[in-house]
Design a protein around this nucleic acid. Structure first.
Length: 901
RNA sequence: GGGCGAUUAGCUCAGUUGGUUUAGAGCACCUCGUUUACACCGAGGGGGUCGGGAGUUCGAGUCUCUCAUCGCCCACCA
């Protein structure tokens, strides 16, 4: 068999993914096995694969593949989210480029374009996930705006309305002046930005006195309907009950007093613009002030402003500033830093605006969602995410969810209006029937009703995801089997958008759909990944351009290499600093990563181990030699040990630790020690040794398979002839057997002996291959190592020694070192500097004495001996005995050497 | 202004009921080495008083308090 020197991820990965798909391994149907389901956090249908996706989908894939190996019926449901604002914005832009305006073509036509766009460009990300190796059940791919899922949204809307948990109201909302829609609070990103604070004076009516206020938004002055001061503010007490004249528009407005006003800030006087500020709106309500709305939906000023009509609010800001100055009302302008809210999707500065919207009452939902996690029904990893969750959902912080959006790409709200009456129903026929009945007018026609133009928030469809992907609102056949899902893997940044709301919806509808005896949480566990950040700790994002090209990374390092890289840094909840360096010229992130490179090197290492093993000529007549005999039992023991450990770590979601454990085991134990020990000089290996080696190697590959599926599958096939359909992916997770712990520690000692020899060679400048003799003295505990034929031979082979023996003869021209507690002597061919050896041994002795002293300090402490657990005390006694033995060995050797001087 | 989390080797991080040799890994670094799996390699080595201080304990990287620095989340200060 001629294998290339370098592992080629490109060809291997394509080959196996195609094979898995052809064999339909990822598909799941309900059966008698235990179900293990995971629903993907649906990426935006417009999205492309980025680092966050790679991290989070690698983790899901590991969990799913492990479950599959454990013999569970593993089902990973993929899909995409219609992402209303983001997608609609893209389609609008695309149409604009074609010279088509959204408003001109109407809703239906627009949706056709949008669906066509989705068919052509949407879902690229799912193809990219295949490159990563994601073992999703692609036959189950869902989309939040497909018919069944949309029906579920409508059904839920109607249900909530009938339960009295939905209401429509005029509220101060966050308005996106670009997308022309309202936004939920969560969709507004606040950041500190530079601004200017205008100090403007208002004349007190009927006097020559002025009150100076400070504002960042002079363009809203024309909408002022009041001025507020603190009731206890001595500066303004004489003005209580008086009125001031708003500059430019010369409107007379009342001075009100309220403790909301901060005495310390600015001049202590505040202009009140109920239409354009949430706080002012509240004050306006309280004091019954007029609401004058001077800003259009697109952010321009309307006629009511009287000035700067038609100008954008930011243009008007400058111009009004000038006008105020000309009118002598502008006192000064200060530079100021303040929090500005921008739309998460369009980056437009959010305009507080009074609009009529649909809201979902959240108090009950929030209480349920809190209880679900505090009771332990839903477990969080890491646990401390509870704090963030709790602070968001506790009663005093919960706000009703604004679910309507002034967009077309989404599920249209199933509400019809006739005058003041509202009819909410699953379809127009039902709405009409209800309207006829309630209005007592059997002749009422559909054309007499007006349907709500708005759609629901995208999250109002994704919060149903764990149920709706199984068509659970229509029938419960699959839901019964797959629900609840096992683990949700997502970033903590969407804990409130999505995780909490899925819990709410699960507890709301699962009992109705499945009955209360069925488990009702949407998932048992939530694994929160951290944010992937760049080397400057900035969140990776498209706009910053600091994210490496995910697909380019896969091309360079292979999916296995990238998966390794994503995992080997960080743990649950902690942010990951991705190590891609920056281009010094452009400041852009380079598609280079040490971690991913390490992963691809690891693939190459394993590949070459296969090359080595495959290169041996197998000889059925050859007997197993003592080294191989010993080494096989050792590697099998270690394998079982590692198996147990890795299983435990995966169960605790400690995936980085698990992959690191496997990395060290495969690289160090298997490649550096085991293979080197059994490596035949003549290239001929006993058949039995080959089989045991292949079997151990195969098991290692299975343990690593969930993490690095491609290379492990490739090697697994390279080791043995396989029957058709007998694939790694469906093979069993190996059983962890009892392991020979005593042998493991003996091998550790043997390794120590080898390292000491190598170290001695390095420091004395003796060639690594120069044949030397080593011995220990008769009657010493080190005999155990030498008496074991396999171990002795292994030491000789690994350290290039001619002989390791037990002897009575007095050492001569030797270098002594400790192996375990005993002294071993290495005979050198050149003259040994006795004084230097004494110095070296004395240094070692000093360390051992220090160590012994610290142990004895504990043991001589009565309180320690009395209070510490017996096992701990025993361990300390063992340490003491060991170090005493070492001290004895060292002292004796030092004495002997001194006698030579 | 509240809350959460960090601070361990040059870098990125482990260290999960306080005791497993007076701290570990990977990368980086230094020395040596082309021995027929792998130079995407092998062998060896240096490097940390676990942010500072105090406390609890027989025993603290681990628990408590405090200070410092840095992140992040939430909040209506014009």
């Amino acid at each position: 068999m001629d294998l290339p020197k370098h592992y080629s991820s490109e060809t291997v990965e394509k080959k196996w993914y195609d094979h898995w798909m052809a064999q339909n391994y990822f598909h799941s149907e309900p059966d008698e096995r235990e179900a293990f389901s995971v629903v993907i956090p649906p990426p935006n249908v417009t999205g492309v694969l980025h680092m966050g996706h790679m991290l989070n989908n690698t983790i899901q894939d590991i969990l799913i593949r492990k479950a599959r190996l454990d013999g569970k019926n593993a089902c990973w449901v993929p899909g995409t989210d219609h992402a209303s604002i983001a997608t609609e914005a893209k389609v609008v832009r695309m149409l604009r480029e074609k010279g088509i305006k959204k408003g001109d073509i109407g809703r239906e036509e627009f949706l056709k374009h949008a669906f066509a766009w989705k068919e052509e460009y949407g879902g690229i990300i799912l193809e990219q996930l295949k490159k990563l190796g994601a073992s999703c059940d692609w036959e189950r791919t869902r989309f939040t705006m497909e018919e069944s899922l949309s029906k579920a949204v409508i059904q839920v809307f109607v249900d909530l309305y009938r339960k009295g948990r939905l209401y429509r109201g005029l509220r101060m909302t966050n308005w996106d002046t670009d997308a022309l829609t309202v936004l939920s609070n969560e969709e507004v990103i606040y950041e500190d930005e530079n601004s200017r604070l205008f100090h403007v004076r208002y004349q007190v009516e009927g006097t020559d006195e002025y009150v100076v206020i400070a504002t960042q938004r002079p363009e809203t002055i024309m909408a002022d309907t009041g001025l507020a001061v603190h009731p206890d503010d001595e500066r303004y007490k004489h003005l209580h009950g008086k009125r001031v004249i708003v500059p430019l528009v010369n409107r007379s407005v009342p001075i009100i007093t309220d403790t909301y006003v901060d005495l310390e800030f600015g001049t202590g006087a505040l202009k009140i613009t109920p239409a354009h500020d949430p706080n002012d709106y509240e004050l306006g309500e309280k004091y019954d002030l007029e609401v004058i709305d001077i800003i259009n939906l697109d952010g321009t000023l309307n006629e009511l402003a009287q000035f700067c009509i038609g100008e954008d609010r930011f243009v008007a800001r400058k111009n009004i500033g000038k006008l105020l100055d000309e009118a002598g009302a502008l006192v000064k302008i200060e530079d100021y830093r303040t929090r500005v809210g921008r739309s998460e999707r369009t980056n437009a500065v959010v305009e507080p605006k009074l609009t009529l919207q649909w809201f979902l009452k959240m108090d009950e939902f929030a209480a349920t969602a809190l209880e679900a996690v505090s009771s332990g029904d839903v477990k969080f990893y890491p646990e401390n995410m509870w704090n963030m969750y709790n602070s968001w959902l506790k009663a005093e912080n919960v706000r009703d969810w604004c679910i309507s959006r002034q967009l077309w790409w989404g599920q249209q709200i199933p509400a019809w209006y006739h005058g003041e009456e509202v009819f909410v129903a699953a379809n127009e026929e039902e709405a009409l029937a209800e309207a006829r009945e309630r209005l007592g007018n059997p002749d009422l026609q559909l054309s007499d009703l007006t349907r709500d133009e708005d759609v629901v928030d995208t999250w109002f469809s994704s919060w149903l995801w764990p149920i709706s992907v199984f068509d659970g609102f229509e029938n419960q056949d699959e839901l019964k089997y797959y629900y609840p899902t096992d683990t949700l893997v997502t970033g903590w940044d969407i804990m409130f958008f999505w995780v909490a709301r899925m819990i709410m919806s699960g507890y709301e509808w699962a009992p109705e759909l499945l009955g209360k005896e069925h488990l009702i949480m949407p998932f048992r566990n939530v694994y929160f990944t951290g944010m992937v950040r760049d080397s400057k700790r900035r969140k990776m994002s498209k706009s910053l351009g600091n994210s490496p090209d995910a697909l380019a990374l896969i091309d360079t390092y292979g999916a296995d290499g990238v998966r390794y890289g994503m995992l080997s840094s960080g743990s649950a909840g902690n942010d990951i600093i991705f190590d891609a360096p920056l281009d010094p010229k452009t400041g852009q992130v380079l598609n280079e990563s040490k971690l991913c490179a390490q992963g691809s090197k690891f693939c190459n290492k394993m590949w070459n181990a296969l090359r080595l093993v495959s290169s041996w000529e197998r000889d059925a007549s050859k007997a197993e030699d003592p080294i191989s005999q010993m080494a096989s039992i050792w590697i099998e023991s270690r394998l079982s040990q590692v198996n147990k450990e890795v299983t435990r770590l995966i169960g605790e979601y400690r995936l980085s630790d698990a992959i690191m454990e496997l990395y060290k085991f495969i690289w160090d134990d298997f490649c550096s020690w085991y293979l080197e020990m059994i490596k035949p000089a003549d290239g001929k290996i006993a058949e039995v040794t080959y089989q045991r080696t292949a079997s151990a190697y195969e098991q290692m590959m299975t343990l690593l398979h969930p993490f690095m599926p491609f290379v492990t599958e490739e090697i697994w096939h390279g080791l043995k002839e396989r029957a058709a359909g007998d694939d790694c992916i469906v093979s069993k997770w190996p059983e962890a057997r009892e392991f020979d712990e005593a042998l493991i520690s003996r091998v550790t000692l043997a390794q120590q002996a080898v390292v000491k020899v190598r170290e001695t060679r390095a420091t004395k400048g003796v060639k690594a291959t120069e044949k030397l003799k080593m011995f220990t003295q008769a009657g010493s505990p080190g005999e155990e190592l030498v008496k074991d034929a396999g171990l002795r031979a292994a030491i000789e082979k690994m350290a290039h020694l001619e002989e390791v023996s037990v002897t009575d003869v007095e050492p001569s021209n030797t270098v002594a070192f400790l192996v375990g507690n005993d002294t071993f002597y290495l005979e050198l061919n050149e003259e040994v500097d006795v004084e230097a050896e004494i110095t070296a041994l004395e240094k070692e002795l000093e360390y051992q004495q220090g160590f012994n002293a610290s142990v004895m300090k504990k043991l001589n402490n009565e309180r320690f001996v009395n209070n510490a657990p017996a096992a701990v005390v025993d361990r300390e006694r063992k340490k003491a005995a060991d170090s005493e033995a070492r001290i004895k060995s060292l002292t004796a050797e030092i004495e002997r050497l001194k006698g030579l001087l």
